[in-house]
Nucleic acid binder design. Structure first.
Lengths: 217, 217
DNA sequence: ATCTGGATACCACTTTTGTGGTATTACCTG
DNA sequence: CAGGTAATACCACAAAAGTGGTATCCAGAT
């Protein structure tokens, strides 16, 4: 009997999942939450699941941050991320944070059940699309010194994420500089670094990727 | 017994919803689909639902286009849109296309059931946040002649949507012009009009809104 | 047959973004 | 303490984006 916790800010989805999973003898849904914070409070009370199903695109606290917190504090909990998108360079970072699975929401329920079981048994579960990225990633592990430094999947810093959000809110560099009491130069430097890390060519790409990564909205 | 069809490209969500709804005596889920196209083919075969639950953010054909097609061809079918976001000026356009409901996915299942019932009985169902926008919208129905023409919620044309997608793919105006065999001037004019219609200040805003509206990815 | 909306095209100008550097400080970690 | 990383700041130039016009052509609607 695998003990589960589900987190997703789409309440209908949450209830649907719970209904499906509860039908099976193999799973017990301990609780469901619409935010990472509530879930963290629950864990703090002492009851821990075997597997945590976590939506990656959550407004309040990004699924990624939640995952990292959980894995740091409760290493015995195994985490499966759920996402609408497959996030190229981003998956790497997630892997390093110690998640056990990454499934697309386009996955069918039978596959989901199988994935949970596999993860509960100590194995891993990734949607095929995601698997591809992981495998390719290993190929380019050693960065050739001569080649471009773009495409490295470094995580954005807190400050950088803050910047991305302000840019998404249609602020210009000047406005952001004023708002954060920074020099415009600094803000531009940050944006430059952000674009490098995200491996995008312009604002359009940056905002799109930020959306996919759950950084904004 | 209300006959339903569900459309969403998240398969797990779809199956969860079906499980929940089938548990009730009041609803019968005729079929579920992961794309608007499949669903249209089903309708063409002659069997029609009372209510169609339609995810707004779908990759292949945006939920909006699907809704418009269905409502045009099968006016007896009542449509409820499901979305993660509440889309200010956009709701207006949807209303005009004749939908009967607009619910956020953060809605709970009981409210969803109630909403479906209400719609099936010929009434309407909107999440409170959406309702707000609609009501406010009616206030500003008559556009004051002297004021700005920004903020009008005209729908984007097909060409404009095409442009938005190319911009989201990080193409510059020049590249788009080459790709579409257009003058760069034309492309710039389009972008200008797009930004006016969407009521955004820059590319960042445009891409963000496009995402929320389900225009891209 | 006129009117409207959509797509096309052009111009001139300002502002912002994007590129490609360097450099200092502070903090944290091994 | 040495080394790395994040945050700060600056410069100059090139390339786009964004503003505010006007105008033609065509197709579909009235």
């Amino acid at each position: 009997m695998t003990k589960l916790i589900l987190v997703d800010d789409h309440k209908v989805f949450l209830q649907g999942m719970e209904a499906l999973l509860s039908r099976s003898e193999d799973f017990e849904v301990l609780a469901t939450f619409t935010s990472g914070l509530e879930m963290m409070r629950f864990l703090a009370e002492g009851e821990h699941p075997d597997v945590l199903l976590l939506d990656i695109e959550m407004k309040a606290m990004g699924g990624v941050e939640v995952a990292e917190n959980v894995l740091k504090q409760y290493p015995s909990v195994r985490v499966i991320m759920l996402s609408t998108y497959f996030n190229d360079g981003f998956v790497q970072q997630l892997m390093e944070s110690g998640i056990s699975g990454y499934l697309l929401k386009s996955t069918g329920f039978p596959e989901l059940k199988a994935a949970i079981t596999r993860v509960a048994e100590g194995s891993f579960a990734f949607s095929p699309e995601v698997m591809d990225v992981i495998v390719k990633g290993f190929g380019s592990k050693e960065k050739k010194p001569g080649s471009s430094q773009s495409g490295d999947s470094n995580p954005l810093t807190d400050r950088e994420i803050e910047l991305v959000r302000l840019i998404a809110d249609e602020l210009t560099m000047k406005e952001i500089a004023e708002k954060l009491f920074l020099s415009e130069h600094t803000v531009k430097t940050h944006r430059k670094n952000i674009m490098g890390k995200m491996d995008v060519k312009n604002t359009a790409g940056m905002i799109k990727k930020a959306f996919i990564l759950g950084l904004i909205e």
